[in-house]
Design a protein around this nucleic acid. Structure first.
Lengths: 337, 337
DNA sequence: CTGAAAGCGCTTACAG
DNA sequence: CTGAAAGCGCTTACAG
């Protein structure tokens, strides 16, 4: 038995006025008599009247809800970005509905359809790792729901995006290793087909070139994004007798494996080999030695994405000028370098 | 310019029937003629008609949304529990609205009020660390919104709860250390005023007693929940010359500090001192050595909390029999023991 | 200054 | 088998 909440009509009846009057009084309309107004406001307050957002939503054709779609809320990047979004959306009366694709493109499609069905006023999304088309996002736009991407963005043009400068981040990381006196720097990239692997590679290459250091393709290794693969990749380099004094890895998870491999071979970090990752994960300080990394401003990225949504919510999602916002990364220097 | 979505009325007009007929046809009512029905369904499909949940919600006095309130979605425990909730709620047509208290009681109060104002059909919550009363939850219940707690639950009786058996988890951890041959086991508890510190202490004590091991109060240390404090606490024990060969800490974060302190003093883990934590954090395998821990079934806890909500959604939140569900923990054995 | 009416998108008794 | 009407909770032109 759900107890019914107080409605305008309840208040109107108790005071023998019309719901219109109550409605106006509660919005402090100047056209209501001071006395009536006071009476109504007092009663509404004491009854703890709260307008029903479903009714409002129906009326305004707005749900005041934005759908946020991320690979996993467990990823620090994602949860930090979500916090950033909430921080700005809250202030504008929006709630956030969060979905996880769990890196599955199929799940992503289902969620986008559900969000559209739920009549969210917009969608802020970061793509699942498993590949696929973007029809579902175009579908949302066709239905009048603006879409803003962040972090993992698609390569189609008709949506706004918030990203970091991955190339520059990679340059920062490699420059840092060079400044620490390293000359033979390996790059452990992500999977070969991922754009991010290539973009960060460009940065790696540029940094080396800028310092007139040779680029040795033997020091470029592709592997999956995880600890085990980082571990294997590093062991393999050692086994093959490759010479290197620095490692830049595409993310911190991979570095955790790299550090384990180096430790196993009694290679001193950072003296023999310095290591730097990407993402500034919360656990970086737990690693041994604590890991230097490139920090992405996830919170700010979330804020920015939310702001873009706010600015675009009244646009025609099928016909507007999308914008791309690029935020800066930051070097976090710890014991591993 | 938001493009309007298709409504029943649109379809009705196009087919020259009433909206009632369209509505019935779409729910496959038997009282609609086969031909009319087919026509309507076909058109609705081709137009990609989706019923407006706001209208439905207004009608049914339900929003089909449940509010989830957690300290931080960045906590692995929280994000895993949320995934569990989504898994069961999805199937029942519910969406989830997630809020973070960020461990602040004040934020928690604000969020609960907002959720109630948003007309969520229920609230599933884990408490913020900062202390305070529970008036806001009672307020939600008074407003007809059922509340289910999980993990960090309040000590009042009028709400259902899903928790783990913390005492038993502690017993499992300490038993494990004892089985590994340890006899002088320290317990690094959380802050002294927290119930969880006391409950897990009871388990610690019971395990020692069951094995006829003495209880040495000098090996009981209270400290804040973080790496730095774990580090300090362990260093202090060493500096004071306390003798111990095992450490059970209230959580894994604290253990990260403990391991660092032991490493600094060249104390071999697990040979000289074995270490076990609580929570089975994802980064446990990144620690050196990898950390044994007690795993809480967070995903299942989330599922269970969601199921309880479903079973109670039609109850009178002010007058029903709350239930408490207790789930089992699991020992995860790694290198630190 | 206040109220009656229409309408947001839907469902469902009540008629026919 | 189909439709007109009322209603969910609200707002807002339109009257007076």
């Amino acid at each position: 038995m759900k107890s019914r909440q107080i409605t305008l009509k309840d208040i109107a009846k108790m005071l023998n006025v019309s719901t219109s009057t109550v409605s106006r009084a509660l919005k402090d309309s100047h056209e209501i008599g001071a006395e009536t107004k006071k009476q109504i406001i007092d009663l509404a307050t004491s009854l703890d009247y709260i307008p029903n957002p479903l009714a409002l939503g129906l009326l305004k054709n707005r749900s005041f809800t934005v759908g946020v779609l991320v690979p996993k809320i467990g990823y620090h990047y994602n949860s930090a970005a979500i916090s950033g979004m909430e921080e700005v959306l809250d202030r504008h009366g929006y709630s956030v509905m969060i979905c996880q694709s769990n890196e599955s493109h199929d799940q992503e499609v289902v969620h986008v359809k559900n969000l559209v069905a739920s009549r969210v006023d917009g969608i802020i999304a970061s793509l699942a790792q498993s590949a696929g088309d973007y029809d579902h996002f175009m579908y949302a736009q066709k239905k009048g729901v603006p879409v803003v991407f962040f972090d993992r963005v698609p390569d189609y043009e008709k949506a706004s995006k918030v990203i970091i400068d991955n190339e520059k981040g990679a340059i920062t990381a490699v420059n840092h290793l060079i400044e620490r006196g390293k000359k033979r720097i390996a790059y452990i990239a992500g999977p070969k087909n991922l754009r991010i692997s290539a973009i960060r590679y460009r940065g790696y290459e540029k940094a080396l070139k800028n310092h007139n250091l040779p680029i040795d393709k033997k020091l470029l290794i592709y592997c999956e994004f995880n600890q085990e693969m980082g571990y294997q990749a590093c062991k393999k380099m050692i086994a093959e007798g490759k010479s290197f004094d620095g490692i830049f890895a595409v993310n911190d998870r991979t570095c955790a494996g790299v550090l384990a491999a180096l430790r196993e071979h009694n290679i001193a970090v950072p003296d023999d080999v310095a290591v730097i990752g990407f993402n500034d994960e919360p656990y970086d300080i737990f690693l041994y030695p604590s890991l230097s990394s490139i920090k992405q401003p996830a919170f700010e990225i979330g804020q920015e994405a939310a702001r873009i949504f706010l600015s675009e919510r009244d646009f025609d999602p099928e016909n507007f000028t999308p914008q791309t916002k690029i935020l800066e990364t930051e070097l976090i220097w710890r014991a591993s370098t």
